[in-house]
């Protein structure tokens, strides 16, 4: 599979009155064609900011992308998204890369029909007539599972349930048949049965459109059923990246292990207390000089307080940023 997005050493900071927030501290990852990549991490781990930075969606000021590149390859040509002009980047956003956000209540304009909100993306990117955009919008509404699309075109967001609104947002995201969909916690604000429907919709769309999906979440349960690979973020850095099976079976980072330990399991009938990770998320105002997880880590030793751990390759698809070898129970060599 070809790589369509290669992000290298991305650094994003926010300059606030309280100081500099080091939101993203050198993030490197790749996304392959048609792949579903889950980015997992707690609030403030930098997962959303990473994706927003790549597409120029962080508010500037106070935010600033200070370093890195994001090579996007589509139709045989490659560009660094961070070097594009604002106008060129607008052609990518909504055209080649679609977005789905967390809260479908607030992500749609309350006083504009959902039909208009979808078709304005079409007319913007495909340069088609209003009439043609309308026809395609009706088809898109049907494609994302909205009944009576002809009638619903003229409805306003408040006339839809949360799940249906999220389907509308998904219709906007796929309108121009993008190569990548970035879904930022698309199921978090929905109740569980609706979550399952939305995950199912994404699965179908992935098949029919062969689109790569970046799924930002803190729900490891959803990840297991949907993603090909997982990227675990902590303190604005990537803690571990692996295929889903590898990550669940042989977690290599103490943080990943802690996250998996905090998951409720259906196969353990006795009511055990869920394990929580002690301590609090890192203070991003402090510049990174050592492993960001060292404060909370049971395995931390001298070196963890002296250097920032680089990504170490365990196998071809499994990388971890940790000096401690959990399997051997001792610090790694070198």
């Amino acid at each position: 599979m070809n790589t369509i997005l290669q992000v290298n050493d991305l650094v994003t900071k926010f300059y606030t009155v309280d100081g500099v927030i080091n939101a993203v501290n050198g993030v490197t990852f790749e996304l392959r064609e048609g792949e579903t990549l889950a980015i997992v991490g707690e609030s403030g781990s930098g997962k959303s900011v990473t994706m927003m930075s790549i597409l120029g969606l962080i508010p500037t000021p106070p935010g600033k992308v200070e370093n890195g590149e994001a090579i996007f390859t589509s139709f045989g040509s490659s560009h660094d998204l961070l070097q594009l002009t604002p106008a060129e980047l607008r052609n990518v956003r909504g055209g080649q890369i679609g977005f789905v956000f967390q809260d479908p209540i607030s992500t749609l304009n309350p006083i504009m029909t959902i039909g208009e909100q979808i078709s304005e993306t079409l007319t913007r990117h495909l340069r088609i007539s209003g009439e043609e955009a309308r026809e395609r919008t009706v088809k898109l509404l049907a494609q994302v599972g909205i009944p009576d699309p002809e009638l619903r075109y003229k409805n306003y967001p408040f006339q839809f349930s949360g799940g249906m609104r999220q389907r509308v947002v998904i219709a906007i995201a796929i309108a121009c048949t993008p190569q990548i969909i970035i879904a930022d916690e698309p199921t978090t604000a929905l109740d569980v049965t609706v979550q399952a429907q939305i995950v199912e919709l994404f699965r179908n769309l992935r098949e029919s459109l062969n689109v790569a999906i970046i799924w930002i979440t803190h729900d490891l349960g959803v990840v297991a059923g949907l993603a090909d690979r997982v990227l675990v973020m902590y303190g604005g850095r990537i803690a571990e990246t692996a295929s889903v099976d590898d990550l669940y079976e042989r977690p290599q980072h103490p943080y990943t292990m802690g996250l998996l330990g905090a998951l409720p399991r259906m196969d353990e009938s006795d009511s055990k207390r869920l394990v929580s990770i002690k301590g609090t998320p890192p203070d991003l105002l402090i510049p990174l000089r050592h492993c960001p997880f060292a404060w909370r880590c049971d395995y931390a030793f001298d070196r963890c307080w002296e250097e920032v751990p680089p990504q170490i390759e365990i196998s071809s698809h499994h990388k971890v940023s940790c000096f401690y070898d959990l399997e051997k129970g001792e610090p790694r060599d070198g």
């Binding site: 909504g94 055209g95 749609l108 304005e120 913007r124």
Partner: peptide, 13 residues
């Protein structure tokens, strides 16, 4: 508002 972020994410001018 979030819907303005959505509008930017559509690539609108």
């Amino acid at each position: 508002e979030d819907f303005i972020r959505t509008a930017y994410s559509k690539g609108l001018e």
